[in-house]
């Protein structure tokens, strides 16, 4: 793999941007080039929030992904509809199946689809949907392998600094749940 491009998209508050940040951090700590490029402005408030993350062994060109995404992560239906056509042949579509359902024939042939009931899984394990995004991230890393799975631990220690360190165990657990789910349901 020389370059890996992914779009994380969902409602504001679903954690799309922070999933992207954790992935970008993990890749950076592996010594890779990364870019994390968010949508911004009023559309973020109550609308869709998305972030384009690119991980590469070489310099990154456009930080905005408009074609050939290696992965699209759709946390809700509007995001799925908006970005489904951007996935490259052979790329992955990782969907929060509690909030979005792929219509028949909506994804191009050759796109690997992962339906992850992230909200249900989060509710069962943590009593709420808060960590659904980390479950999704675990599935993404299994599905597309952009980073070494161990690197996520490094990323956690950077993203959850100081007083936030107490959040690491649950985040790690959620990530592992998603990873295992994708592995068992591939």
């Amino acid at each position: 793999m020389s370059t890996f491009s992914t779009i994380f998209a969902g409602f504001g508050g679903q954690g799309a941007l922070s999933m992207g940040k954790i992935l970008a951090y993990a890749a950076m700590l592996e010594g890779k080039e990364v870019s994390w490029c968010p949508s911004y402005g009023p559309e973020m408030r109550g609308g869709t929030a998305n972030v384009n993350v690119i991980v590469s062994d070489e310099g990154i060109g456009s930080p905005v992904i408009t074609k050939d995404a290696d992965c699209v992560v759709a946390l809700n239906k509007p995001s799925l509809d908006k970005f489904v056509d951007i996935v490259a042949d052979g790329g992955a579509l990782v969907i929060n199946s509690d909030l979005a359902e792929l219509a028949d024939g909506q994804a191009k042939a050759g796109v690997k689809v992962y339906n992850v009931p992230a909200n249900k899984m989060a509710a069962e394990a943590f009593g709420g949907s808060k960590l659904a995004n980390l479950i999704m991230l675990g599935a993404v890393v299994y599905a597309t392998n952009p980073i070494k799975v161990e690197s996520i631990d490094d990323a956690f220690t950077h993203v959850f600094e100081g007083g936030k360190a107490k959040f690491i165990p649950d985040n790690k657990k959620a990530f592992e749940m998603g990873y295992e789910f994708a592995k068992n349901n591939a």
């Binding site: 940040k21 970008a24 950076m28 990364v34 870019s35 490029c37 968010p38 911004y40 930080p63 905005v64």
Partner: peptide, 10 residues
């Protein structure tokens, strides 16, 4: 521009 301002890179 706004994109460079809003974007994160190492």
């Amino acid at each position: 521009d706004g994109l460079i301002g809003q974007m994160m890179e190492p």
